[in-house]
Amino acid sequence: MTGLLDLAGIFVFAISGALAGVRRRLDVVGMAVLAEITALGGGILRDVVIGATPPVAFTNMGYVLVPLAATVIAFFWHPRVERVLGPIMVFDAAGLGLFCAVGTQKALDAGLSPVHATLLGVITAVGGGVLRDILSAEIPALLYDRQLYALPALLGSTAMAIAYVLDSHGFIPTLTAAVLAFTFRILAMRYGWRAPLARGVSER
């Protein structure tokens, strides 16, 4: 079941990457590159860290085909996708939630401590988005967490680690942690919640 959640996270992150390509007026190749790197970047880094090599992205054909399918959907129906299912940031928030939970669980299953697994879950969640922003010539949201990007991932990863320590495993705790991170991220965007600036630094 975790595999299905992983593929779901790959799909929504891939959609966000492909839509970013549309917004930047890239051709279909550029859209596919952004979709693949957004969907797989964080997971590849996670697998390398825990020693799961070659990374699953290079051994499971579905991990490559799902972002390509997302690219096709965005290429032909991007106005409808954004109108019916929400803008790019909603997909990004969904991917963030799914990846922080799944990434933390995989790290815990690999034997990492809850603290280190939480950190790796955050890296899994934000890694693809950072690469997408860099390739799109935008400042990565992680570097100016003014709309709370890393903190929702940290919340979801922490919840996943706590559930694991309490011997709660499987689909329900993973999905709960993902929804928790997703909800926090959406609320932060909706109500303009911001991470604090350094003392004495004023808003521009």
Rank of each mutant, 00 (worst) to 15 (best):
V29F: 14
I15R: 03
R23D: 10
V49D: 01
P54Y: 12
A14T: 00
V33Q: 02
L40S: 07
L19V: 05
V22Q: 13
L26V: 00
V22G: 14
A18W: 10
A52Y: 10
A32D: 08
V48S: 11
R23N: 14
D27M: 01
A52F: 07
V48E: 14
A35F: 08
L26P: 06
L45E: 10
R46S: 02
L45D: 08
G42W: 13
I15C: 03
A18Q: 13
I44V: 08
V48K: 08
T53R: 13
R23C: 04
L26I: 01
R46L: 09
V29W: 12
T38H: 06
D47W: 07
A32G: 11
L40V: 12
P54K: 08
I15V: 14
M31Q: 15
V49F: 00
V28L: 10
T53E: 08
G41L: 06
R46W: 05
P54Q: 10
R23L: 12
V33H: 02
L34W: 03
R25Q: 04
S16W: 10
V48N: 10
P54L: 12
T53H: 07
A35L: 14
V48L: 14
S16K: 13
T53M: 14
G21T: 03
I15G: 03
D27I: 00
G43Q: 01
G51K: 11
E36L: 13
L26K: 08
A20P: 15
L26F: 11
G21Y: 02
D27F: 02
G42I: 08
A52D: 10
R23Q: 14
V28Q: 15
I15Y: 06
P54S: 06
E36A: 11
G41P: 08
V22Y: 12
A18R: 08
A35W: 14
V28C: 08
R46D: 02
E36M: 15
V22K: 14
G17F: 09
V49C: 06
L34V: 00
A35H: 10
V33E: 01
V33F: 05
I50M: 03
A39Y: 07
L19D: 01
I50A: 05
L45F: 14
A32I: 12
V29A: 12
G30H: 02
T53S: 13
S16C: 09
S16F: 09
I37R: 04
D47E: 10
G21F: 05
I15K: 01
T38R: 10
G51E: 01
A18T: 09
G51I: 01
V22C: 15
L45S: 13
I44C: 05
G51A: 03
R23W: 09
I50D: 02
R23F: 07
V48P: 08
G43V: 04
R24G: 04
T53G: 14
T38I: 07
A18F: 11
I50K: 01
M31P: 15
V29E: 09
V49W: 01
L34D: 01
V22E: 12
A20C: 15
M31V: 03
G42V: 05
R23A: 09
R25A: 00
